[in-house]
Nucleic acid binder design. Structure first.
Lengths: 224, 224
DNA sequence: ACCTGAACACCGTTCAAGT
DNA sequence: ACCTGAACACCGTTCAAGT
């Protein structure tokens, strides 16, 4: 019969690393990497800037945790046979970085973080299932992971540009225009390719690269 | 017969973009990315911080110019047949980033810079010489460039770690130790691979990845 | 144990003033 | 035209002080 029970709502939101990371992700997604400051984060969490340091060592740990959070979720639902599994992992990462460009930058900044290890493990394990020779597995896994991260970082950077200047097809057209300005004598290949850029599908091209690597791995395996 | 000609030595070193970029490269190489500030740069050039802005728009342009400077030199001396030329370009970039880790980070940050275009052109042109079908050239070139940049960024990050903690083999051993601590049930592949890490050769592994891609490109070409 | 918020040291960048 | 250096706005991080 206590009428004045815990009417104070008990701030269900006592600060925690998890809540901090979630708020950081919201800021990163909505306003980009530059907008994530401890002051902005503290304001959003309605606390002092210093409070965050009780739960998180520094900004680097915050970004690492945010990246692990995103990638960790992805890695759960990659399925299918070994080859398709590798494609699924790759596409999962690609789409995650499309949705959260800052993840791409962070992955290539901090190679020892858990997210990287998960990617490496899930690719490597599937290569084993694919029957790749023991001695070749490490190199093959590295190649796939390097490729995935390289594409990820590039896409993150391009997304950053698009964020600044309009939509995707507009910014592709802008890039094509810049390419066309390069000296044709010095850059013949780029000139030949530039017109195809606006119609070009990042995601399909990314997958094509994965398939090239898988084809190379298969070719080496059968001794071609 | 003017005795007091220009005895003032005429500071042969009037500020210029080129001198600024060179000084920036020296700081980046010697003390890392964090050490490059406009104040440090001004001090080294014996001028005011603001003077630099007369020659360079901002820090981003400075890093872009420094990166273009390094990569531009590399691209001149890649030689050999088309396949070997691609390997030479790749190894040139790898070694450049080994010597200047900050280049690796910068390349994946600014994909539209001249250095990237040169890499793309020199890889793409050689694919054409290799006889890769028109429609497959763009994807193949992208795959190679993504891979090269991904490996570059990872190596840059690892070099940053080594710079902090001792030499390369020591830091590889450190990484192997961290890998061994991961849960073996969740990370069986990493556990199998960890012991091979200390004896492992970054550069050879990087080249192995290039060869996988070239093998894949060849396989697709002959329709396998 | 956890939070507050002022303070510190340090940035990139600008700009009035000099030559 | 080019340089100087103080000033501005803004960081990450620390820490004495509170509850």
């Amino acid at each position: 019969m206590t009428k004045k029970t815990q009417r104070t709502e008990r701030r269900s939101d006592a600060l925690s690393k998890e809540r901090i990371v979630e708020a950081a992700i919201e800021i990163l997604d909505a306003e980009g990497e530059n907008a994530l400051t401890f002051r902005a984060l503290a304001a959003r969490l309605a606390t002092g800037a210093g409070a965050i340091y009780w739960h998180v060592a520094d900004k680097s740990e915050l970004l690492t945790a945010a990246t692990d959070h995103i990638i960790g979720r992805i890695m759960l639902d990659a399925d299918g046979g070994p080859e398709d599994g590798i494609r699924a992992v790759a596409i999962g990462i690609f789409d995650a970085i499309d949705a959260h460009p800052w993840v791409g930058a962070q992955l290539s900044r901090e190679p020892q973080q858990l997210a990287m290890m998960q990617i490496f493990e899930s690719v490597g394990g599937r290569l084993q299932a694919l029957g790749v020779a023991e001695g070749a597995q490490f190199d093959a896994a590295s190649a796939l992971v390097y490729y995935i991260l390289g594409a990820a970082a590039q896409n993150a950077a391009n997304a950053r540009l698009s964020l600044a200047g309009g939509d995707r097809s507009a910014s592709l057209a802008g890039i094509a225009a810049r390419w066309a300005q390069l000296d044709p004598a010095r850059f013949p290949f780029i000139h030949k390719v530039a017109p195809h850029l606006p119609e070009h599908d990042d995601r399909a091209q990314f997958l094509a690269g994965i398939d090239l690597l898988l084809a190379g791995i298969a070719a080496v395996q059968r001794g071609t």
